[in-house]
Design a protein around this nucleic acid. Structure first.
Length: 439
RNA sequence: GACCCGUUCGUCUAUCGGUUAGGACUCCAGAUUUUCAUUCUGGCAAGAAGGGUUCGACUCCCUUACGGGUCGCCA
């Protein structure tokens, strides 16, 4: 039997990280088992659905790299994959259920009569769970068809899982208490129940339930901030699942190779944005210079900065200084424009050294004398100036960094000098000396 | 309120009866880097509480506390 999993979101809002992780686990399980991953859109609630939300789901899945083998856009033998287009199928199953005598009308709606007994399920994550359905007041018969003729979630979800031959239902723990209902319905329908795996929910860093508007909740925000899809996939995979090794940085293929439902945790996990950023930094570090530059380019363009021909080198210079691609524009501004902002604290710090201005003047002079400019040549000149002044080259570094970048932190000075070129380097030093001496 | 699931450093986690309870993020301190960052080394920091079972319990059982989930003609 080949594994078939599905992700069945409702297009009622943006794609949530919790949903994304559910999709990821289903995808990982299918891929690791050589199975099929189905995307099914549960858009039965017309009032709450929107095209924008539908698109957000597709965009989010595509961005994360979670491709589906069957579903919207790719088709498959179990379509249509929008529940809004499956009315006829539901009608057929509903009639079949009516034939069993387990459905009864109530105020225009139709309810499913539960068997009054203990229902035991064997969850792949939670283990054996038994729910008491003997007392009707605790577990009233559920409505499966509304008085307006439309079907409710429990019914269509079960029918579709049967129709689509889903073998493993991996979903959030918020569905755990729905499972006995689904099991009873499947039994009445004469179907074979899939295996269930209820995964723990993702909480905010303060332990509250993560919902809309919480930081990090919307998958669509991640690309905008400059997260790499591979990093987000890596990070959310580690929320509630463990690869059982000390390694933490994985490609999506690594995850496929290591994934197993047995290693899914039972306790809810909190979302730690700091660590997510760290994971992103680790993934950025693994990119080639060219790949990094092309990822960073849209952000620089968006910031309204000019893109020089040597942008790859510019980006490479700041690569290990950033955790998010969104930080790149700020980090490279001083290399792309001459309108640099001088940090007041940095100026004060340089001024504290009375000799700084004089040294910088000598440095500018030495730079002027360089025939063939390069970062290395400039550094050699700096070393000579330092030697002549009987100071360590390191002492000249800070004033020079301040003059060239306006800041205390930034790329390697050799890189900066090489990228800036002779003219701009000298000009910035001259300008900085003026600021220093002005008062 | 009832029912279900859970509870190891602040956070993510390892441990499947015998460990100085390990790793990672964050933070702090050193080292390296002529500068910045990276990197490296070290440090702070945990078995919710109380009962059992056992020669021995973080690991098994019970109780309590706490956290989360579910109780719709939402999905």
């Amino acid at each position: 039997m080949t594994v078939r999993t599905r992700f069945a979101p409702s297009p009622t809002g943006y794609l949530h990280v919790g949903g994304a992780r559910t999709a990821l686990f289903n995808w990982l399980f299918a891929r690791s088992q050589g199975g099929t991953f189905v995307l099914r859109v549960e858009d039965t609630d017309e009032a709450r659905n929107s095209d924008a939300a539908r698109q957000a789901i597709f965009d989010g899945m595509n961005w994360l790299g979670l491709d589906w083998d069957e579903g919207p856009g790719v088709g498959g033998n179990c379509g249509p994959y929008f529940q809004s287009e499956r009315q006829g199928i539901y009608d057929t199953w509903f009639e079949k259920l009516q034939g069993t005598g387990r459905a009864y009308e109530d105020g225009g709606a139709w309810r499913f009569r539960f068997e009054r007994r203990l229902v035991t399920m064997l969850d792949l994550v939670c283990g054996e769970v038994t729910i008491d359905y003997r007392e009707e007041s605790n577990t009233p018969d559920m409505v499966i068809r509304r008085s307006d003729g439309s079907y409710v979630f429990h019914f269509v979800n079960v029918v579709d899982d049967l129709e689509m031959a889903i073998t493993h239902v991996i979903r959030g723990e918020d569905h755990l208490m729905n499972t006995p209902k689904h099991l009873q319905l499947i039994e009445a329908l004469g179907g074979v129940a899939p295996q269930y795996a209820h995964i723990p929910l993702i909480l905010n860093s303060d332990g509250s339930k993560m919902s809309k508007r919480d930081a990090g909740a919307a998958v669509g925000d991640y690309p905008r901030q400059g997260f790499l899809a591979a990093a987000v996939v890596n990070f959310i995979a580690l929320l509630g699942w463990s690869p059982k090794t000390d390694a933490e940085i994985f490609t999506i293929d690594d995850l496929v190779a290591r994934f197993s439902l047995e290693a899914v945790n039972r306790a809810p996990a909190r979302f730690d944005m700091e660590k997510c950023r760290w994971v992103n930094q680790q993934h950025l570090a693994k990119l080639s210079d060219v790949a990094f530059a092309s990822q960073a380019e849209p952000f620089v363009r968006e910031a309204g900065l000019p893109l020089p021909e040597n942008f790859t080198a510019v980006a490479a210079a700041v690569r290990e200084k950033v955790r998010l691609l969104g930080e790149v524009p700020d980090a490279v501004t001083f290399l792309l424009t001459d309108a640099i902002e001088l940090d007041a604290e940095v100026i004060a710090k340089v001024r504290a050294n009375a000799a700084a201005a004089g040294l910088l003047e000598k440095l500018a002079l030495a730079f002027e004398g360089i025939g063939e400019w390069s970062g290395e040549a400039a550094k050699a000149a700096l070393n000579e100036v330092a030697a002549a002044a009987a100071i360590k080259p390191g002492q000249l570094m800070f004033p020079m960094r301040a003059a060239l970048t306006g800041r205390a932190h930034g790329p390697d000075l050799g890189d900066v000098l090489g990228l800036l070129g002779k003219g701009r380097s000298v000009a910035r030093i001259a300008g900085f000396i003026q600021v220093l001496t002005r008062g």
